[in-house]
Design a protein around this nucleic acid. Structure first.
Lengths: 215, 215
DNA sequence: GTCTATAATACGATAGAC
DNA sequence: GTCTATCGTATTATAGAC
């Protein structure tokens, strides 16, 4: 039932006319989502292409390989992370309030980018964290450790290991979101990702940590 | 260059003569490791077969499909989990000590089965926790919540949300091991999985939580 | 820069001999 | 119960037209 040659040819994807920068950003966005959902190994280039609307070959054209694309995603996360947590380094606030703000920032970040927590776990499990270093996330970690040290020096916080305590605070901030898919079966009446529950969880986390480290 | 028919044939795997039960257990062990390392979707049946020394077809013979094998792994974990955390339900200990023991048990479990934490995260991310319910892990969760409620009733613990606090304690117990591959880059002088560091972390975790919830 | 087509390989699952 | 051999499909990556 295919009449005519040129007037009614099969539907054909019109060639996209876009600038390189926009296309690259679009690919990075789609890639971040797919990598977070399936990890580096499990992500299908086709899925990224489908999400972007760009064809598979374009991804190889811009990023060489799946691994190269993954590294670019990590790099971009790093620059955004710097911006989000840079302010925590300022010493204007009293330590107690600075720590409260850090926890708030951590939970808000986890709520705002729920997929990035998964990305980090895939990175740890599948790639042993080798690509994660590209992002330079360590800077954010040490800025929280610095707050704890300042609190100890000022006598506001009790004697503790700032390194391990930073890890444990990070655990409180992230576990809620990272384990959400498992935790949701516990109590079907609670919507764990609703803004009210997150607000409650923020308060509980701050109360637990602050009471846990005060002198 | 293939002389003779039977005297010099190519090296051939000798047929294994084993009982069904031993073979099944062997497959389950190898499968648990592979599923923890690569998740349900990412695990290759060939890899399990290679690890077991059994041939791929045997796995299908005993477990029908990759999904069936995964469910069997989850079921086995559930029975072991029950045994490991059953004792925590007893109310002989004072609440404070009961909670201390729970945290110790949680960290010890994480240290003893470091791969299982990964398995749970894969389960959450890849399968939305649907297969995790087979294990019945919720029982262990609620037993810790019960301790917190008892502590509040006795006036030993401050007023808190037992549900969210259980999640946060679990976060402290598990994050250290789950994020280990990312955290190891922070301070190369600290061996996070050494028994001394785990001992330190256990103490820090107990101090943080106990101080955090005491009345 | 963007597309189509395809090479090369890897994987889940099954059939059938022993 | 255990093995070999294979089918069908999905996926990374590239070649080459436009």
């Amino acid at each position: 039932m295919d009449f005519s040659g040129s007037s009614q040819k099969k539907k054909k994807k019109p060639r996209q006319v876009r600038d390189a920068e926009a296309t690259q950003a679009q690919i990075l966005d789609a890639a971040e989502q797919e990598f977070a959902r399936h990890g580096l190994a499990g992500t299908r280039i086709d899925a990224i292409a489908a999400r972007t609307g760009v064809v598979k070959a374009m991804i190889y054209y811009y990023f060489d390989s799946k691994e190269g694309l993954y590294q670019s995603v990590m790099q971009r996360i790093g620059t955004e992370l710097d911006i989000a947590f840079k302010q925590l380094a300022n010493t204007d606030l009293p330590v107690e309030e600075a720590l409260r703000e850090s926890i708030r920032a951590g939970i808000n970040y986890g709520a705002a980018y729920p997929h990035r927590g998964m990305l980090w776990f895939y990175e740890a499990i599948q790639n042993q964290g080798q690509y994660g270093q590209i992002s330079g996330w360590q800077k954010s970690f040490w800025s929280m450790t610095a707050i704890l040290e300042r609190g100890m020096a000022e006598g506001v916080f009790r004697s503790l290991d700032p390194f391990l305590t930073t890890i444990n605070i990070l655990g409180v901030c992230t576990f809620y979101f990272n384990a959400h898919e498992n935790l949701k079966y516990l109590d079907s009446t609670r919507q764990l990702l609703s803004s009210e529950m997150i607000k409650q969880q923020t308060q509980e986390a701050i109360d637990l940590v602050l009471a846990g480290i005060k002198a």
